[in-house]
Design a binder for these strands. Sequence first.
DNA 1: CATTTCGATAGATTATTTTTATGGCCTGCC
DNA 2: GGCAGGCCATAAAAATAATCTATCGAAATG
Lengths: 294, 294
Amino acid sequence: MTLDQLLTFLAVARLGSFTRAAEEIGRTQPAVSQQIRQLEESLGAKLFEKLGKRVYLTEAGRVLKEGAEELRAQASRLREAVSQVAKGERGRVRIGASTTPGIYLLPRILGAFRRRYPAVETSLSIENTFAIERKIKLNELDLGFVGAHPAKQELVVVPLGNDELVPVAAPSYLGGRRRRLEAEELAEHPFVARERGSGTRQAIDAWASRKGVSLNVVMELNNPEAVKMAVAEGLGVSILPRCAVAPELRQRRLVPLPIKDCRIARFLSVIYHQGKHLAPAASALVDLSRKLIF
Amino acid sequence: MTLDQLLTFLAVARLGSFTRAAEEIGRTQPAVSQQIRQLEESLGAKLFEKLGKRVYLTEAGRVLKEGAEELRAQASRLREAVSQVAKGERGRVRIGASTTPGIYLLPRILGAFRRRYPAVETSLSIENTFAIERKIKLNELDLGFVGAHPAKQELVVVPLGNDELVPVAAPSYLGGRRRRLEAEELAEHPFVARERGSGTRQAIDAWASRKGVSLNVVMELNNPEAVKMAVAEGLGVSILPRCAVAPELRQRRLVPLPIKDCRIARFLSVIYHQGKHLAPAASALVDLSRKLIF
DNA sequence: CATTTCGATAGATTATTTTTATGGCCTGCC
DNA sequence: GGCAGGCCATAAAAATAATCTATCGAAATG
């Protein structure tokens, strides 16, 4: 039983004639005869009977006709569904993001994406960079938004833009002072940090060791919002992604802490598996991200 | 897109390997590769991606997998349904019967048939012999139970048995008399007859003209039950199929009217279209009918 | 009763599928 | 890090399947 045979069968059943069915499907009549014979053999049932001139469906043929029509409709729906996915009109994109991009960037990006591709489902799981890399390698995620250069052989890295890290403090913490600190002076201030292993923390540690500063970490938090709260409460200073503190800086709930030569720029990237054929929807999301960042 | 390609696709999707899928379906690996490639081309969508060693479904592949499984299940159900019809376990038999067999024979036959083949639908339409023959020729009926020899070239006639016609009267009509009538004497009695065109009437008329008797028809009714009622009420005598009057004879609501040389035997037959491939269920019904008649 | 229509059949031909043989790529193991 | 082994892709050959041409026979038609 093949789909082709079923289509031939349906044409014969509908037209009540082998010859006319043959014309309709652009074959010769013997080809139709053989297709029907094979279908009958494979099903073990006679499908037509020739009473006089006309051909009639047998009872088995009537049952097959019902079912074959349903099958054809379903096959056609399936073809359409796959085609929609292939064209990016439908589908699912599984996104992973590390904390900073996940919280401060992706909501905006995904909002725009959703307006553009309303029928494409997106799932976002926020985890640390390491976990995201692992899941991408296992094909459990399609795209990863991370702030560290993985530079692994198996991953494609699409640069999105710089994510500047800015030192901040509570307005009351600094008081009236406006003096620019030397990098070493940071050691004198209590420092509220993200947990070790976070991209933000890694970038800060790398900068600090480059400058020969040892930070006076008084608190480690695995959530940038919690870090902001702690700093706003005057527990200490911190260095946070600009996109994370932009609203607080505007509302003056936090203020910049000027430090000499403090240009910590983390590179935000989208990563995906080497050799992966990005679905159109995923590809569109990457494009959209690049536009929205700049 | 063929069913074969979908089955191959499902095997690959399930096993995550072209080679293992090939083993499972008994082909070589390149055959699987080509099937998948053709499927991808016909759908216009990449279905698998090779990331490292394993092959993974793309989003389009995931959609196809869902749908293909449904399609497979439906195709398999369809195959089963057709097979059941072909084996006579299921199906529909469209039966036509003329009045006498339809009322007095078929309820019993169909009851027995239903117990034997509970999943086979039967439809019974009671019409006159002419209409039944026409519908059988138009393939609107599968089997016809009639009491006249159609002997048309295009019909197969399966004899079931004799349907004896017995003269009857109301007990009160005869009074104490028990004398056997000569055929000619029947003309002296009011006769309650079936309508012209009914098989019973035709048989009686044929017998009467053979005997040179002209019946004194005082009433024509198109329903044998109505004839019985009329006779029971003493409106006259009639000649009715034995199977139609058996209960009344037993209950003495009617009594036989002995007439010399009155052996009117109508032959009951099943008819179907010449060249018709009887479905197993229909065939079984014919067999059952022959058993139950004798 | 000849004629036409329609499906079945057989043999030739074409198209498709499968296999065989091989190459490239990645992985994992020493 | 080199090498073997596993896995998929590819191309040509072989096998299989589908289609076409030609023709037959049965049934309906005028």
